[in-house]
């Protein structure tokens, strides 16, 4: 199970820690062969009741000085980030896991084991919180045409102006169209905040916990429609109650021009303590 290390000097290897799981859950169910990527093996480092899910990596590759250059290599970065997520998703299929942040690299096994034993209590508390639960992401996008044809017409001024614009001719028609567009845009501006509050409130009531994430720019979201909400929720692993709430919400807001997109299940990245110091 140990990755071949013949080409690298022993002292040049560190441990990349993906996450921490409970030893009884993880060791029994995960067994051998968590393939991280073509070149990497994933190992379970057991320390008392906890197990670190980790890979041996070249310390040179993850050197603090060299990292800025590595990070500007989009191919390297995407591969490492995908590997991190892929390993944790595989673990999540079998066991609850406390995910670590990208590039958590220990210089040696001694340091990794010391972390697991010294911070055992905090890690077990974090594990208890996510046990039997998963994180799901919900993103909401507004379709401007559907908003203008539906929700925007609840505004009296917009309805009135639409009627005027439809009968107007020539230059006046143009000006009224412009005014109408502006009015719809400002109505959308107002509605965005209202929609985000409504979505979060409804979903939170069907989840154990939840939080609002920053909106993604269109370059990142991969969709042409404007994102109006981005949230993460901690839900029971079967997700039944949450999916029902989400389905009913999606039907209620569809006519307002809003589409929901669900992602996950994710390891509970957003529901573990951020700081877990060395004590």
């Amino acid at each position: 199970m140990i990755a071949p290390t013949a080409t690298l000097p022993r002292k040049g290897l560190g441990w990349y820690l993906y996450g921490v799981a409970a030893a009884d859950e993880a060791s029994a169910r995960l067994g051998a062969g968590l393939a991280a990527g073509a070149a990497q093996e994933v190992e379970l480092v057991t320390e008392g009741p906890l197990v670190g899910v980790a890979s041996r990596v070249s310390l040179e590759e993850f050197d603090e000085q060299a990292l800025p250059d590595r990070l500007s290599d989009a191919t390297w970065l995407e591969q490492k980030i995908r590997t991190h997520e892929h390993v944790l998703e595989r673990v999540l299929e079998h066991a609850s896991v406390v995910p670590c942040r990208f590039c958590t690299v220990y210089r040696g096994e001694v340091e990794l084991r010391r972390f697991l034993s010294e911070r055992g209590e905090a890690l077990e508390a974090a594990l208890d919180r996510v046990r039997g639960r998963v994180e799901v992401g919900v993103k909401a996008f507004v379709d401007r045409d559907r908003f203008a044809a539906g929700r925007a017409r609840q505004n009296d001024d917009i309805r009135q102006l639409e009627a005027q614009a439809s009968t107007a001719e020539g230059g006046r028609a143009y000006l009224e169209r412009r005014r109408l567009e502006q009015l719809v845009a400002s109505e959308l501006e107002r509605f965005r905040g209202e929609a985000a509050d409504r979505i979060h409130t409804r979903l939170l009531s069907a989840a154990e916990d939840g939080l609002v994430l920053p909106l993604q720019a269109p370059e990142l979201s991969g969709r042409a429609e404007e994102m109006v909400f981005n949230g993460a929720y901690l839900v029971t692993a079967d997700r039944v109650g949450f999916e029902e709430a989400l389905g009913s919400l999606a039907r209620d807001i569809r006519d307002d021009g809003i589409d929901l997109e669900l992602t996950g299940p994710w390891p509970a990245y957003n529901f573990v303590p951020e700081e877990l110091g060395a004590g």
Partner: peptide
């Protein structure tokens, strides 16, 4: 984008004997 906002921004941060 969804992976980035989690793997880069969230998850436990460990101080101490780490490389980076």
């Amino acid at each position: 984008a969804d992976v980035l906002e989690r793997v880069l921004d969230k998850g436990i941060v460990i101080a101490g004997d780490i490389q980076i």
